[in-house]
Computed example of a mutant assay.
Amino acid sequence: MNTGSTTKTSYAGMMYSHDFQLWYTYFKRRIEKEWRPEELSFLLGKPDHAYLDFEKMFQVRKFLTQESILLDGIYASSRIETMEFHREEYEVSEERLVRLKIEEDEVKWSYSIEVPWTFETGKKKPPAPDLQFEEWKSEKDLQLESDAMLHIRQKLEALLEGEYFENGATALQMFRQVEPTGLVHLQIFPRHLKNVLYSFIQQNKLVVRNIENRYSFFLTDSQQASRK
């Protein structure tokens, strides 16, 4: 397959081995879910760049301290990828440089993770983690995209009629509401919800506010007034 031009980028960051385990766990989970980094930022109630910065290894420990519990909630799992690091008897735990290399072409992202550790493997030990990943760019089916947005719009319109937004609602709370469809062929992604929410903001139905450093969505003043 001719994938055209390729763009190569590389990012690096210092982290302890346990932090790498968590970083790797969330990286692998995201790819398995077929979500993009900005979709995780959205569900976390953060600007688009927030999760991408973490994946690029910027202030990993700080991000994990602040967001790991919520990330586990998003994925409904607190399981950490198993790996056993080899250490000599004289070695102590210390931050080391980890590098993420990315090659992007027209159809996919190819990831290569370079780590400074070796892994203990063999009988009764976990296998070494896979350090090569591919993330394929989705080919958008316009009909499915339209069906997904219609499904979300109908769900949110029903929530608007009630008291759901009186005290604000987070993106994650709403995603839990709209994700089930009962249809095998229709998968809801966070980006679908984000697109519909921002169309509601343009229509003056909702407003976004920063509450304790996370975005929440509220009824507009005009919407609230119309109910009185």
Results as ranks from 00 to 15, higher is better:
residue 160 L to Q: 03
residue 224 Q to H: 07
residue 171 A to E: 00
residue 46 K to V: 03
residue 29 R to V: 02
residue 4 G to R: 01
residue 214 R to L: 06
residue 45 G to P: 07
residue 11 Y to R: 08
residue 111 Y to W: 13
residue 120 E to H: 13
residue 126 P to S: 09
residue 60 V to A: 10
residue 216 S to V: 05
residue 159 L to H: 00
residue 125 K to L: 15
residue 150 L to V: 08
residue 200 F to R: 03
residue 154 Q to Y: 01
residue 121 T to G: 06
residue 162 G to H: 00
residue 43 L to Q: 06
residue 124 K to G: 03
residue 160 L to I: 04
residue 157 E to H: 01
residue 47 P to E: 12
residue 168 G to L: 00
residue 6 T to L: 08
residue 13 G to A: 05
residue 64 L to D: 15
residue 184 V to N: 03
residue 80 I to E: 12
residue 124 K to F: 10
residue 89 E to F: 11
residue 53 D to T: 10
residue 168 G to K: 00
residue 110 S to A: 14
residue 143 Q to T: 11
residue 25 T to N: 05
residue 192 H to G: 10
residue 181 T to F: 06
residue 95 E to W: 11
residue 104 E to D: 07
residue 1 M to Q: 11
residue 76 A to T: 01
residue 23 W to P: 02
residue 162 G to K: 04
residue 104 E to Q: 12
residue 215 Y to T: 04
residue 98 V to N: 02
residue 86 H to R: 13
residue 105 D to H: 03
residue 211 I to Q: 10
residue 195 N to L: 12
residue 150 L to E: 08
residue 184 V to Y: 02
residue 208 V to W: 02
residue 9 T to I: 05
residue 75 Y to H: 13
residue 216 S to I: 02
residue 71 L to D: 14
residue 144 L to C: 01
residue 203 Q to M: 11
residue 180 P to W: 03
residue 108 K to L: 15
residue 134 E to I: 08
residue 15 M to W: 01
residue 174 M to F: 04
residue 81 E to C: 12
residue 43 L to R: 07
residue 190 P to Y: 06
residue 145 E to D: 14
residue 40 L to G: 03
residue 188 I to V: 12
residue 174 M to D: 00
residue 36 R to T: 14
residue 50 A to E: 14
residue 175 F to Q: 02
residue 187 Q to M: 03
residue 225 A to N: 06
residue 15 M to K: 10
residue 136 W to A: 09
residue 66 Q to I: 11
residue 60 V to E: 11
residue 45 G to W: 07
residue 113 I to W: 08
residue 207 V to C: 06
residue 167 N to P: 00
residue 71 L to Q: 10
residue 60 V to T: 14
residue 104 E to C: 08
residue 63 F to M: 06
residue 161 E to Y: 01
residue 119 F to C: 06
residue 54 F to D: 06
residue 181 T to W: 01
residue 207 V to L: 09
residue 114 E to W: 03
residue 187 Q to G: 01
residue 164 Y to E: 00
residue 109 W to D: 05
residue 127 P to G: 08
residue 179 E to G: 01
residue 120 E to L: 14
residue 87 R to I: 05
residue 178 V to Y: 03
residue 11 Y to N: 12
residue 206 L to I: 09
residue 115 V to G: 01
residue 147 D to E: 07
residue 90 Y to V: 09
residue 163 E to H: 02
residue 150 L to H: 06
residue 1 M to I: 10
residue 136 W to C: 05
residue 65 T to Y: 15
